[in-house]
Nucleic acid binder design. Structure first.
Lengths: 344, 344
DNA sequence: TTGAAAGCGCTAACAG
DNA sequence: CTGTTAGCGCTTTCAA
């Protein structure tokens, strides 16, 4: 009395043939298609080890029966998860505001590239410790505003392929993708020079790796013309912080004629302060922001800003983890940056 | 000659005991701790079916040997993925701008709630069709700006627990979480009434479900005072669209004295247009935006806006899919909304 | 080109 | 409280 396999919802012991809508396995499909399970597996993966005809038949059956591939089984067998964990700081705080579409575009690029190559994207934040699921990822991408040194070390300890978004120069031993911050700073400097400005200032917290690089590029380019910029203390990322810093700056250096801010938000705060102090923008003071946010673009006056393509950045991050996971080499890389000149 | 198991990196056939740093299984831990694999499994899951002492020993060994739990194996065995797919529109387009921290906060809330209850968050976009990985999720959360009817039906067809972020009233048969859009509209209306305004207008595309609700709430509250608002055509989400709409509105109805916009961006565009047309804000025209973005809060003048807590919304979405997955009931729900009164 | 056997690491079900 | 047995669904050998 060999008990017939009867998972089918139809439930007839005499009908081992599955029914569309059932929960199917490759073995079930195999039965229907008159082949073995391994052949189904091959057909579904486009293996060259299967006849084109057979493959077509199998796929057709799979389609018809609404077969759903079991990822867990494959992963268990392959000892891989085909998953990349993305660690993001999702709690916008006062000092560290996740403004604009920036992180979302980055996520978009990552997701697009990774999913189209068969990986899936696991979203995680830092709080709460590493989940088993996160630890099972084949690789990790670290986002956030660059201050995640601790996270970097923690994740680094897992010994997994890891790629970081941030300031490239800071972490020699890691694979880092970042925009060309020095180049961005240089762009702003050159623009100011072209406009004949000679008393520029830099607005941004240089404790932040990426901003330090922008500052360096800014300073280096200006120094070719014998100019040394002011660099007032800026405590935060917000419009108010920008305004406050500029008020303080004007108290000390009323002749400032150009401002380069590390974010559009800061730049907007700067413009506000300038206007409150009777300066005209751009007649008296030129202002350049960073990130080219829609916010800046549609501000009055429309803000000139350094543009970075975050979607591309996301794609690049994804490619690099993938390379690392697959044992190929990958190095740090810097993304091209350009200046969008608008009214300011 | 029974071949000794020798996965250990140490490689000695005589040393079946694993070594810290190896790739370990529960069976390996079991050997070290002098128990069986199932006991290890129970200990690690805090099952009551295991002695406290045994549990402690097992956990200690696991810790010491750097044991990594294999999620795939558990998922295969349990026939679950412990994963929730989040479908997001990550490509900010011109008409549908993902402005502000909105989607990221939502994601933050979702991630926080889901990961802390053992689920992981799988990020997916719509393009490229449903990946096997996505289809394997135990549940789905649909984000995006509400126009994802097609996605909703597609995902609905998978027959998985699904929760949607958007306009609650639109989809009776689905579990929808959304902010109290009608309430938000009413809040704006009441504020205008309190300010003695009598010729208000609504700014936003009513083809969008959530905006239609805001409009309804706005109209309903105003009607109690016998007031019918203007509702010019607004084509997009941007500052420019807001400005354009208001210019057109002023051409037709120069006496407008209050504007309620469905987004802060739109509201800012509106203020710009008002000023260009010589109107003072708020002396001549009151303006209220939506979403209470940092952008609006720090604008000059600081924008009054309807606030919604997106982190809470994310948490709620997460709780509801989880409930659905676990077979508990869950209904649609509306989130409290309040008006932040600033200068406008 | 196809198939049979084996096993990835875990846990539910049933003994003991 | 602990253990034995079995099997989740897939794919890498190896053989035909």
């Amino acid at each position: 009395m060999a008990p017939a396999k009867s998972k089918s919802r139809s439930g007839h012991v005499q009908t081992p043939l599955p029914v569309p809508g059932d929960h199917l396995t490759m073995a079930d499909l195999a039965k229907v298609a008159g082949v073995s399970a391994i052949t189904v597996s091959r057909a579904l993966r486009d293996s060259p080890l299967v006849n084109a005809e057979t493959r077509a038949r199998v796929r057709q059956v799979a389609e018809q029966y609404g077969y759903a591939f079991n990822v867990s089984a494959r992963n268990l067998r392959l000892r891989r998860s085909m998953t990349v964990a993305v660690v993001v700081e999702m709690k916008p705080s006062l000092e560290r505001q996740m403004s604009g579409p920036y992180p979302l575009e980055l996520l978009g690029g990552i997701t697009q590239e990774l999913t189209s190559s068969g990986y899936s994207v696991l979203l995680t934040s830092l709080q709460g410790g590493a989940l088993p699921n996160t630890q099972a990822a084949d690789g990790v991408i670290l986002l956030g505003q660059g201050a995640h040194e601790d996270a970097m070390h923690e994740v680094g300890r897992w010994g997994k392929p890891m790629v970081v978004w941030g300031a490239v120069s800071r972490h020699e031993s890691q694979v880092v993708v970042g925009s060309d911050n020095r180049g961005g700073g240089a762009l702003a400097a050159e623009r100011f020079i072209a406009l004949g400005r000679s008393r520029p200032a830099f607005l941004g917290d240089r404790a932040h790796g990426e901003f330090a690089e922008r500052f360096d590029g800014f300073v280096a380019s200006l120094s070719k013309y014998g100019i040394v910029p002011q660099a007032p203390v800026v405590s935060a990322f917000t419009v108010n912080a920008g305004a406050k810093a500029v008020h303080a700056l004007l108290d000390q250096h009323p002749q400032v004629d150009a401002l380069f801010a590390v974010s559009d938000l800061l730049a907007i705060g700067a413009i506000r302060a300038l206007i409150e102090r009777g300066r005209r923008v751009p007649e008296d003071v030129s202002v350049i922001g960073y990130d080219d946010t829609p916010l800046g673009a549609t501000y009055v006056p429309p803000l000139s800003s350094v543009h970075q393509n975050f979607v591309d950045a996301g794609v690049l991050l994804a490619r690099k983890v993938r390379a690392l996971i697959e044992g190929e080499p990958a190095g740090s890389e810097t993304l091209h940056t350009h200046l969008v000149v608008r009214a300011t």
